[in-house]
């Protein structure tokens, strides 16, 4: 059986170069590849284009890579939680491409599925439509959007096996499955890595074919942005 296990994040990310295009899973701070982000910090690669729904907060998630000026461009749907992000954007140090969330998810899905473009109703008549083809289907207008792919996709799952099969937990799934398929090299970090054959094939969310490297992550902080309690 193919064994995709690597020792840890540093080995998994050893061939990421400056100016790479990388996808990072997660919604807010939920389901982000914490270990791989730490490895990017240690490696110090610069000029990264990061495709991720959000940009973390000042001192966690992708926010850490902004502090060290490793990010050249962000492709995201919502970036509101980060003061350093705002500063770099306003000073022109950081390039940002804002994409509607459903369009972002579908562009990544298309990238992994070999579909170069598709038509969506989202954004017709808005700034998002500028420079894009609009076509009418059954009397309604739709916008052409293109696929997104990446040199590396960094995803996080709950459980994984040595063959790269992944299972996510709760709402930590979010963008991870599509990104796993859209990366030329997909690096999965999991909370629990088990031998191939021990996960129930009926319950796999991401089949191992999409994953090139897998490791068991350490020391997950799983920070909560809005801790809301019922009284």
């Amino acid at each position: 059986m193919i064994d995709k296990t690597v020792k840890g994040a540093d080995e998994a990310l050893q061939d990421i170069q400056d100016n790479a295009v990388i996808m990072l899973g997660g919604f807010g701070l939920c389901g982000i590849p914490e270990n791989s982000i730490q490895a990017l910090l240690r490696k110090g690669v610069k000029g990264l284009t990061c495709i991720s729904n959000n940009a973390g907060v000042d001192d966690f998630g992708i926010g850490l890579l902004l502090q060290t000026r490793q990010v050249k461009k962000m492709i995201s749907s919502y970036v509101g939680e980060n003061a350093e992000f705002e500063r770099q954007l306003l000073s022109g140090e950081l390039e940002v491409d804002l994409v509607p969330q459903g369009t972002l998810a579908e562009r990544i899905r298309a990238g992994g599925a070999g579909i170069p473009a598709f038509f969506t109703p989202t954004g017709v008549g808005t700034e998002v439509a500028e420079g894009k083809e609009v076509r009418e289907f059954e009397g309604k207008q739709y916008l052409m959007e293109s696929w997104l792919k990446a040199d590396f996709a960094l995803v996080k799952a709950w459980k994984g096996d040595t063959a790269g099969n992944l299972i996510y937990k709760g709402t930590a799934r979010n963008f991870n499955p599509m990104m796993a398929a859209a990366g030329k090299i997909t690096i999965a970090e999991v909370e629990e890595l088990i031998p191939a054959g021990e996960l129930d094939p009926n319950e796999i969310h991401t089949p191992g074919i999409y994953v090139q490297r897998i490791f068991e992550g350490k020391g997950y902080e799983k920070r909560i942005e809005q801790r809301t309690i019922r009284s």
Partner: peptide, 25 residues
């Protein structure tokens, strides 16, 4: 409280019986 279970406002939530989980796509 479960860090892996939030709503779109990033608030912690719970699931009602009969819930389903899925990807953003």
């Amino acid at each position: 409280v479960d860090a892996d279970l939030i709503n779109a406002g990033k608030q912690t939530v719970t699931m009602r019986p009969g819930s389903a989980l899925f990807s953003s796509a």
